[in-house]
Nucleic acid binder design. Structure first.
Lengths: 349, 349
DNA sequence: ACCTTTAGCGAAAACGATTTCGGTAAACAC
DNA sequence: GTGTTTACCGAAATCGTTTTCGCTAAAGGT
């Protein structure tokens, strides 16, 4: 059925070892036999059996990417990261294996490590991140965190520059004339949340604007949490004229809430997103946002991980990838905002 | 480092073969030693080496999904299919390997087949589909097409019921009172295009409405092709009052074109999508569309493929998955459409 | 003419599991 | 007491590679 190295050996009357060496570019084989072997292998359609090769070499040329149940559904984000990662992997003769750890992530990851199924692991955000890293360290499995800065010593990551992005978009709002700018947190997202909030705060500080606690509200991962957060802000006696949403999806919810209250976008209230997903392009008005180069993040993550696979004693790789402010139509000057004229009753503007 | 079956053997003073048999549930091992082995394996954190097991069993417990360069970027669609597939695979102790065949799909797929890297293959739409199938047949590799009906004899597929969906959404427009309904084709998509167009035509026929050739326009895969198609329709001396877009992304483009011409949605013109992607939910107004159960399609595809892996002599598996009409705010009665009042000059309604 | 290097090749040992086949001892049949 | 079954176990073959090590013959050095 499938052609093995032995088939070539028999056909050519050359030993198996020489065949293998010819195919793998060893020096102790004459160029004459090498050419013969190469050509015959090609003709016979020979490709080395993956399992046998992996077993002998102790290497699989596969890297895994593990996603927790919740992130499986954050599809827009993944949908851009993963192609970037897969394409880059393939350029290095490596493939991507998808792991979804629904029931028991740690047990699953343990199996993957101990069965030596992959050479390295990409970690997406997960609530079990800490114990996953513990495990990977114990098992001496190379890994890298994608899309999220980690403060843990020795870990590698490729993440967007959330601080710079958040600062830039806040400055944009300030330049438009806003001085009451809401911020929608996402505490569950750890350093991502910390950094974006820090960028927001830094921009306010530099402009000598106060940080107003009432204008900072939480959002959760569940659906439509941006809708509720927006309503909370608009219920304030003195609501903001601009809102920096933690990310695009939340911003879309927020736009719905604002529109339902009869507010005009962006004249009455400016709303921004973050991440630059496709969603941000098809709202009306289109969202001003910060675009993460997700495709590039996927690429660089794989490159970095493969470097770690080559040499696991490398110092940790930690990169913040520059992001891009995308000014669109969801932000404007607050000068004609009805929220300013009659701020005590935003329900009937 | 990693614990092998031999380590257990030495520790317990039991032969390797007995260990293996205990682990794999063979009958000729006493329940006493079985328990002992199982417990010891657990304690030692033993997991069988994947490569060794694959080599011996001639099976990898991996299935591949191959996507062509172009589809890599159709992210919203993939983003729902793939999680469904990955989750289901994992429930069957199988994992998904992602292949992106950029430069040379056939060479890539050949390698995957001949190196026996996977047990089966999922095929997404690709322009090279035909030669891929030829190859898979030759190599006797189980495969299934996802998301697209195939007319080729002997092939298996899981696809949405495009005909029924298209018919339902056209009937919805007819019931609203439209009698000039545009249709945006996507000839590149083969049977998908054929079926959706057939559904459209069937609905017209049943309602005794004529099929008007001018109202049927092409769209291509490139960006914004829906924008141009919409303009073509609106430039007609007698434009349609409703447009059935081939899919949601095209519909979004079409909405932009209509809005730019000062038309009100849905009063002046009704626009529908197809597929029910996230995009369709966040436009203003939200798109009436046909929702494909993408997650379920992913699940069923994997289940079917695994069945074929078990027994490749099975008759082909061909399923059309029911779809769901989602009526939202982008469609309405044409009774107040300005396109009807002044149909010769839609530019200045 | 003798010793040393070099080029090219093949035998054989891994890699870590699964699975076949035969063997032993106890249980059973008669 | 002999023959047969049964329950349990282990030796060894096997999957298809890679890689080490030794061998032969030719080439080179003096």
């Amino acid at each position: 059925m499938t052609v093995t190295i032995e088939d070539i050996s028999k056909k050519l009357g050359i030993s198996i070892s020489t065949i293998s060496k010819a195919l793998n570019g060893y020096a102790d084989v004459s160029s004459q036999t090498r050419d013969l072997v190469l050509q015959t292998a090609q003709e016979m359609g020979y490709h080395p059996n993956t399992a046998a090769r992996n077993l002998r070499r102790g290497r699989t040329d596969k890297i895994g990417i593990i996603m927790s149940e919740s992130i499986v559904y954050i599809s827009e984000y993944l949908a851009e990261i993963i192609p970037g990662a897969a394409l880059t992997a393939e350029q290095h003769d490596t493939n991507l294996i998808l792991y979804t750890s629904v029931d028991n992530p740690i047990a699953n990851l343990t199996r993957v490590c101990r069965s030596r199924e992959v050479d390295g692991m990409i970690l997406l955000w997960s609530s079990e991140m800490r114990s996953m890293i513990d495990l990977l360290e114990r098992e001496n499995m190379p890994y890298i965190i994608i899309g999220r800065r980690s403060e843990r010593e020795g870990t590698s990551y490729i993440a967007p520059d959330n601080f710079a992005g958040a600062k830039a978009i806040t400055q944009h709002l300030i330049q438009l004339g806003h001085d009451r700018i809401g911020f929608m947190l996402r505490p569950a997202l750890g350093t991502t949340n910390v950094d974006r909030f820090a960028g927001y705060r830094a921009a306010l500080e530099e402009a000598d604007l106060p940080l107003i606690n009432d204008l900072v509200v939480d959002t959760a991962i569940e659906q439509r949490s941006g809708y509720h957060a927006m309503n909370t802000l608009l219920d304030l006696p003195h609501p903001p004229t601009a809102v920096f949403s933690f990310h695009d999806v939340v911003a879309v919810d927020a736009m719905v809430a604002a529109t339902e209250r009869g507010l005009r976008l962006p004249d009455d209230i400016s709303i921004t997103g973050f991440d630059g997903l496709r969603s941000s392009l098809i709202t009306t008005p289109r969202l001003t946002t910060v675009r993460q180069p997700l495709h590039e993040i996927g690429q660089r993550t794989v490159s970095a991980l493969l470097a770690l696979v080559e040499d696991n004693s490398l110092p940790p790789i930690r990169e913040l990838v520059p992001v891009q402010l995308e000014i669109r139509e969801s932000t404007a000057s607050p000068q004609h905002s009805r929220l300013l004229l009659n701020s005590s009753d935003p329900h009937t503007p």
